[in-house]
């Protein structure tokens, strides 16, 4: 059939039109479920949040519908929040970088295994995360605490105890631990598409391994790196539980601020929280779109 369209010229336009229509039909079919679900169960509820951000907080925490822009004003003038923003972004950058450095070789190793091993290895990476999040974090406390496993080993070696927890370092360990798979999976998916014979070709053309990696492999697996970085960076910036449990709740991250504004302060301030969330989302979404454009679509 495909052949026909090429040979029989007179019917060309009709077939093309038909094809185009079926193309559009197919696109609609593919697009509909996702569009439907996200519009109904995500975008529509989100409208409420947008409305909240222009409303006023009532004395008991109930949102009152007096239009105001004050929430956005507070957001940009209040210096109290700056530290939390910076701290969160720094934690996000650091976690993303370390996850990338640890995750890329891991994904590479898995891809190079025979198929049956690859699935097993993938599952092995995910299985630890099928336990409860809090219990996992508690396990880290047990490992890092003053009388914990690491300190027991250190003391057995005759060295003085180290205060590992609660600390910023413990928070970082917790964040890396919790986010590593989010980096590995997309990179794996991307490496899986990579044609390793290209490395051979590069070598044949005289490129050394480093050059071959930097010039061939890295650019071609950029979509995975980009996706992984986003999946690690975003949750890290918004988290609050890891920093509370492993860091001793002594400092605020962005996630703590939001949590407090919505459900921990009394009265809660939903309008201000909504405004903060909307700015946060807008900035990050634009950043992500740009990031993906730059890193993965230079071929278009």
């Amino acid at each position: 059939m495909a052949l026909e369209t090429l040979t029989s010229e007179p019917r060309e336009s009709r077939v093309a039109a038909l094809l185009r229509r079926s193309e559009r039909f197919r696109l609609g079919l593919l697009l509909f479920p996702g569009l439907f679900w996200l519009l109904l169960f995500f975008a529509l509820p989100l409208v409420v949040v947008v409305l909240y951000s222009f409303a006023t907080p009532g004395p008991t925490g109930r949102v009152e519908w007096h239009f105001t822009l004050a929430n956005y004003g507070t957001l940009f003038t209040e210096s109290l929040y700056v530290n939390a923003y910076l701290r969160s972004i720094w934690a996000g950058v650091l976690t993303t970088l370390i996850c990338l450095l640890a995750g890329y070789p891991l994904a590479l190793y898995i891809v190079r295994r025979p198929p049956r091993w690859r699935t097993v290895l993938l599952f092995l990476i995910l299985i630890p995360f099928w336990t409860n999040f809090l219990v996992r974090t508690y396990a880290w406390m047990i490992i890092l605490s003053n009388n914990g496993i690491i300190n027991s080993i250190i003391q057995a070696l005759g060295l003085p105890r180290v205060a590992l927890y609660p600390s910023e370092g413990a928070v970082l360990i917790g964040l890396i631990y919790g986010n590593l798979p989010f980096m590995v999976l997309p990179i794996f998916a991307s490496l899986d598409r990579f044609d390793f014979t290209l490395l051979e070709a590069a070598a044949d053309l005289g490129a050394d391994q480093t050059r071959a990696f930097l010039r061939v492999m890295l650019p071609l697996t950029m979509p995975g790196i980009a996706a992984g970085s986003v999946l690690v960076f975003i949750p890290t910036v918004g988290q609050f539980v890891v920093s509370d449990l492993l860091g001793g709740a002594k400092v605020d991250y962005l996630g703590n601020l939001l949590q407090r504004l919505f459900t921990r302060s009394n009265p809660p301030n939903w309008p201000l929280g909504s405004a903060m969330a909307i700015v946060f989302m807008a900035v990050l979404t634009v950043a992500i779109l740009l990031y993906f454009r730059i890193t993965t679509e230079q071929d278009r």
């Binding site: 696109l27 697009l31 996702g34 569009l35 996200l38 519009l39 169960f41 995500f42 975008a43 529509l44 509820p45 989100l46 409420v48 949040v49 986003v230 999946l231 975003i234 918004g238 996630g255 939001l258 949590q259 919505f262 459900t263 939903w270 929280g273 909504s274 969330a277 946060f280 989302m281 990050l284 979404t285 992500i288 779109l289």
Partner: peptide, 29 residues
């Protein structure tokens, strides 16, 4: 297709949205 960039943004929003915000929005909805 038309609106692809818009839909692209819509797709990233659930990743970007702080959980508490999505939770309260869904509750109200």
């Amino acid at each position: 297709f038309r609106g692809r960039t818009g839909f692209d943004a819509l797709l990233y929003l659930p990743i970007v949205i702080p959980e508490i915000v999505m939770a309260l929005a869904l509750l109200a909805f």
